[in-house]
Write a protein that binds this DNA or RNA. Structure first.
Lengths: 234, 234
DNA sequence: CGTGGTTTTGATCATAATCAACGTCTGTGG
DNA sequence: CCACAGACGTTGATTATGATCAAAACCACG
């Protein structure tokens, strides 16, 4: 049990202490809500199994997806700022989370500097993720966005010991589109195009990344082994 | 001195304690760097006077602006995740910051739950800001983006006691464009267009917002007084 | 099977990017 | 104080990209 409940990115010392306050494990079935916008912020949730999407509702009522979250990640930190969750979290498949009561976590953090740091880290991680990946998305073409998205997913699967080259997406084309700021037809066409170009193979949600180096080049990521060649900019 | 050094959004109790550890005040002149990407994270900076931009360098060496920061705001929290700053901060005009050594801040946070909370709040604030305002930017037209940007600036000036209707931008058209994921020519045209439509008046960086309600409607923000009319979505 | 949600593809249109030229402002040195 | 250079801003003409509208095919599930 403990194994999967433990968040990636926390130091060993903090992890042991954490274990003690993990009391509740909850199942959330497909399309079930973990928390809603406006809910009082009380806990963090360590995803033990499954996948979640977080989203906000735009003025027109359409949902704007703000993130996808997989097993091993912690969600709910968005509520910290105002004591209320600022988005809604829904399971994309039958899932299971460990509830981490924030009050106790906060208390524990007093004794354990490492955990304190870890919590901060966690809070700033989404932020950094956005900086590093998604904000850059603003100035990128549709093709680059989708590629970045797929590479991000691949990387996260890999970090969990799964194949980075072959996986099954848990979200619809429309959900991907919402996340990337595109239309679903555009996302479809891009899958087709990347397939025609031999970079990947997609049958519905099953995806095989065939030419990783090319995909990385497409989004301007240096293909490892010589990062020294990145030109310095003064 | 204390007055302006103190961050907006911290509770009174925390503020008093904070005062004691504010040791250094630093000037940063126009175009001067406060911190660079990769710099060791040691402090937060409370902007006492002036304006900063934060940005990352894209693969091609072009700068991608990730935020604008005005007097009363705290920057530098981006470095918390990895102990290294993940972006660069440069002053857009002659500015002044208070240095808040994070180690001491962290230590202080142990005793003061309020401060602890405030720090978390701070860490998650940028995140929330993005959620609420800029992430939504992904699915918006160029005109909506610029309008959101201007309304955001207006709101922040207002929060500081300045006019929300009339202000002088501190950044170039190109910098606005970078921030919004547009090209500078597009930003220019949009200023012209909004001016033609009578929504604002722009002479270079001096901006007057002439029709606030119309601007808010443009981006789908309910014009106060009846938020009850927003349809519920289940 | 048939029904609803999802995915794919086509044709057309709107928006913003690109390429290009020119105007304007600011600060510097003569 | 003026002339000039360089950065910044504006506008026009054209193109490329992604949105929109529309019609099928596909698929999973009851």
């Amino acid at each position: 049990m403990r194994g999967l409940c433990l968040p990636i990115g926390l130091e060993p010392e903090a992890l042991r202490r954490l274990n003690d306050l993990i009391s509740v494990r909850t199942r959330v079935q497909r399309k079930g809500t973990l928390y809603r916008l406006g809910d009082r912020f009380a806990s963090l949730y360590a995803i033990r199994l499954g996948t979640f999407k977080t989203f906000v509702l735009a003025a027109n009522g359409r949902e704007q997806i703000t993130g996808y979250h997989m097993a091993g990640e912690i969600i709910g930190i968005d509520g910290l700022g105002d004591d209320r969750h600022t988005c809604q979290a829904i399971a994309l498949e039958d899932s299971e989370v460990c509830v981490l009561p924030f009050g106790e976590l906060d208390q524990l953090a007093v004794d354990v500097p490492t955990l304190r740091r870890s919590l901060f880290r966690l809070a700033s991680r989404d932020l950094s993720r956005h900086h590093g990946k998604m904000l850059l998305l603003g100035s990128r073409s549709a093709e680059e966005r989708l590629t970045l998205f797929l590479l991000d997913i691949a990387e996260r699967y890999q970090a969990r010991g799964y194949s980075a080259h072959e996986f099954v997406l848990r979200m619809t084309r429309g959900e991907i589109a919402s996340y990337l700021g595109l239309k679903l037809e555009t996302v479809c066409r891009l899958f087709s195009r990347l397939q025609d170009e031999g970079l990947l193979e997609a049958q519905g949600r099953a995806v095989k990344l065939l030419d990783m180096p090319a995909l990385k080049r497409l989004v301007g990521q240096e293909v490892e082994a010589d990062r020294a060649s990145i030109p310095a900019v003064g």
